[in-house]
C-alpha cells in the first residue's frame, strides 16, 4: 500500500490560511490503513483545526468528508457537492489522490495534508516499512524476494557494503541491512550461488527517471 504521514498542524494551518472555508477530504484506502487520512483522521484534524483557528480568533469553517478512493474518478465524484460548498480542499490522500481531485475540480485549490512517503508493508500494528520503489523492472527473483534497490541505502546490487554490521545497515542501526536479509533468504532457499553471480547495471528506463509512466491496458479501454 501507499504509506503517508499527516503534515504538522503548523504547516496545514499555513497552507489553508488564505481560505475561509476548507473541506478536509479523506480517502478510505491506503492512507486510512496508515492512520494518515481516513475518516477518523479527517475528524481529528477538523476538530484540531477548528480549535486552533478559534484560539487564534480566526473565522474559518472546516467541513469533513471522506471518499472510498481519491485516485478513482468514480469515487471522487461523490465529493462534488461538498467541494462546491467550500473555497478549498485539503486532501488527506496520497499525492496521486490530491492530483486526481485537482484534475476534476479545476477551479478549486486542492492542497496536500499528507506527506506521501513510500510503498510499504504493515509490518505490525503501527509499523510500516518501505519495500518497493516501483522501478518498473522487478528483479526480486534474483534477490530472494528482498529488494536491494529499495531497502539498501546505496542501492547495491552485488552484495553488502563494508558498513554492514550485525545485520544492521550502516546508515541506520535500527534498520536491517537489505543484504543481510537477502543472504539469509537465499540461504533458506538453498540459492546461495546467486550471490556469486555478477548483476549488471540496472536498467532504470522503466523507473520514474524518464518522466511520468503510464500503464495502458488496451483490453480495458473502449
Amino acid at each position: 500500500m501507499i504509506v503517508g504521514e499527516q503534515k504538522s498542524i503548523e504547516e496545514i494551518k499555513k497552507i489553508v490560511s488564505p481560505y475561509k472555508k476548507v473541506l478536509i477530504l479523506g480517502c478510505g484506502t491506503c492512507v486510512k490503513t496508515c492512520f494518515a487520512g481516513g475518516e477518523d483522521e479527517v475528524a481529528v484534524l477538523a476538530s484540531a483545526l477548528r480549535l486552533a483557528f478559534k484560539k487564534d480568533g480566526r473565522q474559518i469553517e472546516v467541513e469533513e468528508f471522506t471518499v472510498e478512493r481519491q485516485c478513482e474518478d468514480e469515487f471522487v465524484q461523490e465529493s462534488a457537492e461538498a467541494i462546491d460548498r467550500n473555497e478549498s480542499v485539503l486532501s488527506l490522500a496520497c499525492g496521486a489522490g490530491v492530483q486526481a481531485i485537482a484534475r476534476r475540480y479545476e477551479e478549486t485549490p486542492v492542497l496536500p495534508g499528507v506527506n506521501t512517503t513510500f510503498l510499504g508493508v504493515l509490518e505490525k500494528h503501527g509499523l510500516f516499512t518501505e519495500e518497493c520503489s516501483g522501478c518498473g523492472d522487478c528483479q526480486l527473483a534474483v534477490f530472494g524476494s528482498v529488494c536491494p534497490y529499495t531497502r539498501c541505502a546505496k542501492k547495491l546490487l552485488n552484495g553488502p557494503c563494508g558498513g554492514s554490521r550485525e545485520g544492521k545497515c550502516e546508515v541506520d542501526p535500527e534498520t536491517d541491512c537489505a543484504w543481510n536479509l537477502i543472504i539469509h533468504r537465499l540461504k533458506m532457499l538453498g540459492q546461495l550461488n546467486n550471490l556469486r553471480v555478477y548483476i549488471p547495471p540496472k536498467n532504470w528506463s522503466g523507473s520514474g527517471s524518464c518522466g511520468p509512466r503510464k500503464l495502458i491496458r488496451k483490453d480495458h479501454i473502449l
Binding site: 477518523d40 475528524a43 481529528v44 476538530s47 484540531a48 477548528r50 480549535l51 478559534k54
Partner: peptide, 11 residues
C-alpha cells in the same frame, strides 16, 4: 475513547 471525542469536548 477516540482522539476525536477528546477534541470535541474541548470544542
Amino acid at each position: 475513547i477516540k482522539d476525536v471525542f477528546m477534541l470535541r469536548a474541548f470544542e
